[in-house]
C-alpha cells in the first residue's frame, strides 16, 4: 500500500471507529482516532499477518496495551478481513464477541487480552522472549497510551525488555497528550518520554504519528536496530479528524449522540473526499 492508500484506509477505519462507538453508545473514540494511523500502518504495511491464519505461530504479534482503544483495533482487524465490518455494529452489546476491551479468547486477530493499563507491555515482552527462545523471526509490537506510562509496571517491563536485548520488540507510545483527567503534563507528567525510554536502554525514535512516511521510516529503523528494543514516541492528536473531538479530553471515553455522529461522519467524509482528489 502506498501512502495515499494508507491514508484512505485510515479514513475508513476512523469512520468505523466513530460508527461502532456511536452504535455502542459508549467506548473510547479519542484515543482510537489518535492511533488510527498507527493501527493502519501496522496492519496494512508493517506486520506479517494473515487474517486467514490468525494463529500462525510465525506471525508478528500486536498487543494493545492501551486496551480501551479497542474500537480502533477492532475496526482495523475488520477492514483487514479478520471478521465482518458489520459486526462492529454490535460492539459492547450483550452476547457480541466484540468486548469493551480486547479479548483474545473470542476475537480473531487479537493476540492478547488487555485493558487494565500497564499490563499489555509485559505480555509483549513475554512474547518477544518466547521468540528469542525459539529462534523465531517474528516481531512483537505493543501500543501504549502516554497516560498509561504512569503505571509502574510499564517500567518494570521496559527494564526487562532492554536487559534481555529484545530487538524483536517495538513499543509505540501514542502521545496524544491527554488522559481522562486532562493534560498529561498537568495530571502527572510523564515527560520527557523519549529520555525515559533512552535511560531504560531503548533505541528511541520520535515521530509524527499521523505522517505515514515518517512512520515507515521509524519502523524500518526499528527493524534495523539490533541488540536493544525500540520505542517509537508518536506525537498524535486525540480525536484526530473529527472537528469537535480533536484535543478534547472529554472525548476520551464518551460516545457521540446522533447529531454529533452526523457531524463526525461529515468531517470524515470531507477528509476522504480530499484524499480522492489527490
Amino acid at each position: 500500500m502506498n501512502t495515499l492508500e494508507l491514508k484512505k484506509q485510515a479514513n475508513e477505519i476512523r469512520k468505523s471507529i466513530v460508527t461502532a462507538v456511536h452504535g455502542a453508545k459508549s467506548g473510547h473514540p479519542g484515543g482510537s482516532l489518535s492511533a488510527a494511523d498507527i493501527y493502519t500502518y501496522l496492519y496494512f504495511a508493517e506486520m506479517n499477518v494473515d487474517p486467514e491464519n490468525p494463529k500462525d505461530p510465525n506471525r508478528d504479534r500486536f498487543v494493545l496495551s492501551k486496551g480501551h482503544t479497542a474500537p480502533g483495533l477492532y475496526a482495523t482487524l475488520a477492514h483487514k478481513g479478520y471478521f465482518p465490518v458489520e459486526d462492529l455494529n454490535n460492539l459492547r452489546k450483550v452476547g457480541c464477541y466484540l468486548q469493551g476491551h480486547p479479548d483474545m479468547k473470542h476475537i480473531p486477530g487479537v493476540d492478547m487480552s488487555s485493558g487494565s493499563l500497564g499490563q499489555g507491555i509485559s505480555a509483549a515482552v513475554g512474547m518477544a522472549i518466547a521468540g528469542k527462545l525459539d529462534g523465531a523471526d517474528y516481531r512483537v509490537y505493543t501500543l501504549l497510551g502516554d497516560g498509561e506510562i504512569q503505571e509502574g509496571q510499564v517500567w518494570e517491563a521496559a527494564m526487562l525488555a532492554a536487559h534481555r536485548k529484545l530487538d524483536n520488540l517495538v513499543v509505540i507510545v501514542d502521545n496524544n497528550g491527554l488522559q481522562i483527567d486532562g493534560d498529561i503534563a498537568k495530571v502527572n507528567s510523564p515527560y520527557p518520554i523519549d529520555k525515559k525510554f533512552e535511560a531504560f536502554n531503548f533505541h528511541v525514535i520520535n515521530v509524527d504519528g499521523h505522517d505515514f512516511d515518517a512512520l515507515a521510516a521509524a519502523f524500518a529503523e526499528a527493524r534495523a536496530t539490533k541488540g536493544q528494543p525500540t520505542a517509537i514516541v508518536a506525537k498524535t492528536v486525540k480525536g484526530k479528524d473529527v472537528s469537535f473531538m480533536e484535543n478534547q479530553a472529554s472525548w476520551h471515553g464518551s460516545a457521540p449522540n446522533d447529531e454529533q455522529y452526523a457531524v463526525a461522519m461529515a468531517d470524515l467524509e470531507k477528509v476522504g473526499e480530499a484524499l480522492c482528489q489527490k
Partner: peptide, 9 residues
C-alpha cells in the same frame, strides 16, 4: 504478564 506472553507463544 511476561509469563502470560510466553504462554500465548
Amino acid at each position: 504478564g511476561v509469563a502470560a506472553g510466553l504462554a500465548t507463544a
